[in-house]
Computed example of a mutant assay.
Amino acid sequence: MKPTVIFLIGPASSGKSTVGKLLVSKYNFGYLDKDMICNKFTGKLLETNGYSPFDRDGCSFYTDVVMDLEYQTLLDIANDNLQLGNSVILDAPFLGYFSNNNYINELIEKYNWHTINPIVLKVTVDFATLKQRMEARALERDTWKLANWDKYVQSIQEKQCLWENIKMVSFDNSSDTVDAEKLFQILDFKSGITI
């Protein structure tokens, strides 16, 4: 059996969690959400260093010190599951790592994932819908994004995932409900992926 790791990427409010949980319910993957794993600790770490617990975007302390700790924690937990033969979905933006085209190869070497099947599932959504969803969820951590919308959109457009040695698929999640049939078809788990 060859376990699969899905890197579920996409901007905040694109519906990654909804898509990820739908896949989990069908294929019985483990589901690891970086925010659920790290947010409480990250918030406290930021606060004790004089920042708002919701500072992420535009905060150099977060990007220089905290971000790598979050992702290392997420990947270590994922690796434990994968080594036990359990497939996992990683719900996290990974934006800060997109420019490293060797990122997946580095993870394969670090964690000995030579028998792991990695996939990127990029959840996309049109920007008008994205803004509506973000405004509707009204989370404090989105304050900077909404206040700097054009800059935020530009950063999404500029940051393309350049990873090599990994299958990449995109799923447009702009409609009001997730098209589950289309999602399952895009992933096509019958073609060589063992769950």
Rank of each mutant, 00 (worst) to 15 (best):
I119G: 07
L183D: 09
R133Q: 00
V19L: 08
N165P: 02
K159N: 13
V65K: 14
I6G: 07
E164L: 12
N100H: 02
T143M: 03
V123A: 03
T63C: 01
D57C: 05
M1K: 10
I116F: 09
K2F: 11
E140G: 11
S25K: 14
N102P: 08
I108V: 07
L8D: 05
I116V: 15
T48R: 04
L23T: 09
S175M: 09
N100T: 11
G58C: 03
L69I: 06
L46C: 05
Q83H: 14
V88D: 01
D33L: 07
K145N: 08
I77E: 12
V66Q: 01
E47I: 03
Q132P: 08
I195V: 15
M36S: 04
M67G: 10
N105V: 04
A138H: 10
D179L: 04
A147Y: 09
M1R: 01
N101W: 12
P11Q: 07
I156W: 13
S174C: 08
F98S: 08
V24P: 02
K110G: 00
L23Q: 08
V65A: 10
K159T: 15
N28R: 15
K110Y: 14
I193P: 03
L162Y: 06
I104K: 00
N49G: 08
F61I: 09
K182W: 11
D126T: 09
T63M: 03
S155F: 00
I119W: 02
S155L: 07
I89G: 00
L22G: 07
L22H: 05
A128Q: 13
Y103I: 06
N79L: 12
L74P: 05
L121I: 10
F29L: 01
F189E: 04
K159Q: 12
W113F: 07
A138S: 12
